[in-house]
Write a protein that binds this DNA or RNA. Structure first.
Length: 418
RNA sequence: GCGACCGUAGCUCAAUAGGUUAGAGCGCCGGUUUGUGGUACCGGAGGUUGCGGGUUCGAGACCCGUCGGUCGCCCCA
């Protein structure tokens, strides 16, 4: 009889709970990321989930959607305006300046965690989502860009993800970008009447974005739109050449995508995205680029930097199913004497490095059932007979065979078997 | 913010064109087996059909509203 019905609680819109396979996949993406990062010599950095609103407002660009309508911004009890981080880079640069990390430059950093954007959720897009993130701060060399791209590429391979293509472009240096942008505006102004409604708005807010419009009307105009190469300064051109050569030499396949632009205002030079067509309307799995002016804009010294971020949920959707966490041993202890002896046996097994679990309740059948479901390789049966004889029954869960092993020899014997 | 589709046990779904007591599989609990899992058989618990209103003799099905979900637009990881 349910007296008072409490409505079933739901997670906040666009936020998810993970258990089982989902949680395993999440964990697997992060663990693989850490492992690959280690091979590239990247080190962890931790930064807050919340920053002063100004950290994002100024740097991402006032007119970008993230700043204009997607930030979780709220006043704290002291009246300061805070924002849940919508991306990693700005916060890391803030920390770099706050903590005087220039003394450690060049820094190769990784981090991961939740990000928040107030958007309408859909496939591969959530209000709380998670990213892995890699940044190189304090390196003007194209080799830094190359290494980051190789890092991302190897990560995808290690995750068993295929069918992803690397699109590479340059936005040039500040002069190049400005000149190109000006040419684009002039060009699209001339074709105002042919532009889609959305692109007319983009023309005012972020003209570069017209380049990746999905509207057929817009796409028809793109063929003759000015290409950045025509406005490229010598240095910017040379830089991009070096990046492309390095990526190629790393054995990473890519396609030049001259219409690739990125969402935030701080990007300069290299811009890239690893894209997939298996994510519904979302294409980008990992995206990044160079942001040479950002640290300085934060009030720090002039500092070149590059980085990328990858969506963990998106990587989870693309990765082959990871193996479930391995359980070596399930202990089935029956009777008061056995249950009293269980902790010591478990402690010994765990200290020896085994993944050992114990069923806490039920009759023998139930406990064996649990042992079977846990996927344990061996079940250790400890009952009155074993206690009396100073042994443990070791059962191979694959073939069902079992044998009594002296209690004192148990760890050694399991080490031989596993 | 806009659009389309969808809300039935814990989960995945069913319920002829409105018609008795809303079913099944999986999972869970118990039994066949008072010390042996993965197979099998038997039994059991578990539902205000998202919520509110309306139409009807009668609504899980139809209508309106609302909340939630999914997918798409915008934008992005």
């Amino acid at each position: 009889m349910k007296a008072n019905r409490v409505p079933k609680p739901a997670p906040v819109r666009g936020m998810q709970d993970f258990l089982g396979d989902q949680a395993n996949r999440f964990d697997h993406v992060v663990a693989t990321f850490r492992d690959v990062a280690r091979r590239f010599g990247f080190r962890p950095v931790m930064v807050p989930v919340v920053e002063a609103t100004s950290v994002y407002q100024r740097t991402l660009g006032e007119t970008t959607d993230v700043v204009a309508k997607e930030m979780y911004t709220f006043p704290d009890r002291g009246g300061d305006s805070l924002t849940l981080r919508p991306e990693f880079t700005a916060g890391i640069c803030r920390a770099y300046v706050s903590e005087g990390w220039q003394q450690f430059a060049p820094l190769k950093l990784i981090t991961h965690g939740p990000l928040f954007r107030y958007e309408r959720p859909q496939k591969g897009r959530y209000r709380q989502f998670h990213q892995i993130d890699a940044e190189v701060i304090g390196a003007p060399e194209p080799a830094a860009d190359v290494e980051l791209i190789a890092f991302a590429d190897l990560l995808l391979k290690e995750l068993g993800i295929s069918g992803v293509t690397l699109q590479l472009n340059t936005l040039g240096d500040a002069e190049t970008r400005d000149a190109w942008r000006g040419a684009l505006v002039t060009y699209f102004e001339r074709h105002r009447d042919a532009l889609s409604e959305d692109s007319l708005r983009r023309l005012e807010t972020n003209p570069l974005r017209i380049l990746d419009s999905k509207e057929a009307a817009d796409r028809a105009l793109l063929a003759d739109a000015p290409v950045i190469d025509a406005y490229m300064s010598a240095q910017a051109g040379a830089f991009f050449e070096a990046v492309q050569a390095g990526v190629q030499a790393s054995g990473v396949a890519f396609v030049r995508q001259p219409q690739l632009v990125r969402g935030f205002d701080y990007y300069r030079h290299t811009a890239f995205e690893f894209v997939s067509d298996a994510l519904g309307a979302q294409a980008t799995v990992i995206g990044g680029g160079r942001y040479d002016g950002l640290v300085e804009q934060m009030g720090g010294p002039s500092t070149p930097a590059v980085g990328w971020a990858g969506g963990i949920e998106r990587l989870m959707m693309l990765s082959a199913q990871p193996v479930a966490p391995r359980v070596d041993i399930a202990l089935v202890a029956m009777g008061p004497a056995a249950e009293a002896a269980a902790p010591a046996l478990l402690a010994e097994l765990r200290i020896a490095g085994f993944a050992a679990e114990q069923a806490w309740r039920g009759n023998m059948k139930k406990r064996m059932e649990r042992a079977g479901k846990s996927g344990a390789r061996y079940a250790l049966i400890l009952g009155e007979d074993e206690i009396a004889g100073g042994t443990v029954m070791v059962k191979n869960m694959q073939d069902g065979s079992q044998a009594a092993v002296p209690r004192a020899a148990i760890v050694r014997r399991l080490k031989e078997a596993l």
